[in-house]
């Protein structure tokens, strides 16, 4: 049981949105899909769900191509920016409509979650505020019970309390009924302990695709007097480097040695710091020499 992207490419005009992207999304994981604006995250999710056709390559869901394939597409649900309900439809009716399309949709659960979020069932979808329009889509995603659930910027416009509630409900849902979750987000620090696998996109290519734990075990930061730090990092792969007066902090790809020169401090990096360091490293490489 998996989603396979085989060498997907997509171009918009002069922009190569995705460039031969190959990925396998295995059952029973929460994937984090990270990347700066324009990295290709939404394009990738749209192609996964056959809303957009790739120029090259194909997507397989449990071995079947998704192109025009209702059976394969029925296993996926994308929580994105768009609504696919008639304009004047009310929330309650929209849930019922979703339930008629997705046989495992849990109407009772949807009503329960709507209540927890304070989402009014009798309101028209179009009259919901930005935050509640997001919440409406989240409730769909948390009730639909497809084997694969894709969230594109799920917490956009949500206040801190509702974001927290969403993450809690997502984890509860995920641990009660095993499924595969993909979360595309800019709020890396909020999901870094939730996603067990991280995919980092940059300019339409995959920069990293690995278990989150493995990524975090293979990077660290060293700080201390600039001269000492420079000597220490001479034979190492530097991702990024920042100086503050005579103090220098360098993030390094690899594992720290057990005996460090006195005066240097080693620290673990957060996923967000690692992400930023990787982007900085990529920018340096792209600069003309």
């Amino acid at each position: 049981m998996s989603i396979e992207l085989q060498s997907i490419s997509k171009r918009f005009g002069s922009t190569q949105a995705l460039d031969q992207v190959s990925l396998t999304l295995e059952e029973g994981h929460i994937y984090g899909l990270l990347g700066n604006n324009g990295a290709g995250k939404t394009t990738l999710l749209s192609i996964l769900t056959d809303r957009l056709r790739p120029d090259f390559g194909q997507v397989l869901v449990d071995g079947q191509p998704v192109k025009n394939n209702d059976e394969a597409l029925g296993k996926l649900f994308l929580v994105g920016e768009q609504n696919f309900f008639p304009e004047d439809m009310k929330v309650k009716r929209a849930f019922e409509t979703a339930a008629s399309f997705y046989p495992d949709f849990d109407l009772e659960q949807a009503h329960k979650l709507a209540k927890e979020f304070g989402l009014p069932l009798k309101k028209k979808i179009t009259s919901l505020s930005t935050g509640y329009a997001s919440i409406f889509r989240l409730v769909l995603g948390l009730s639909v019970n497809t084997p694969y659930i894709l969230f594109d910027e799920p917490v956009l416009g949500l206040d801190a309390q509702h974001r927290d509630l969403f993450y809690r409900l997502l984890i509860e849902k995920y641990s009660q009924e095993p499924c595969t979750v993909i979360i595309s987000t800019h709020l890396i620090s909020e999901v870094e302990n939730i996603v067990d696998h991280t995919i980092i996109l940059r300019d339409g290519r995959i920069l990293r695709d690995a278990p989150t734990e493995e990524l975090m075990e293979n990077t660290y930061a060293v700080s201390g007097p600039a001269g000492m730090v420079d000597r220490y990092t001479e034979d190492k792969t530097i991702l990024s480097s920042h100086s503050l007066g005579g103090l220098k902090t360098v993030s390094i790809q690899g594992q720290p040695e057990s005996d460090l020169p006195l005066g240097l401090e080693v620290s673990r990096m957060s996923l967000q710091d690692y992400f930023i360091s990787l982007q900085e490293a990529a920018e340096r490489e792209e600069e003309p020499a």
């Binding site: 409900l169 984890i171 641990s175 302990n193």
Partner: peptide, 15 residues
Amino acid sequence: SITEYAATYKINPAT
């Protein structure tokens, strides 16, 4: 339970 810990602390249930 594991679910309770995971949901409360916002961590992956496997963790």
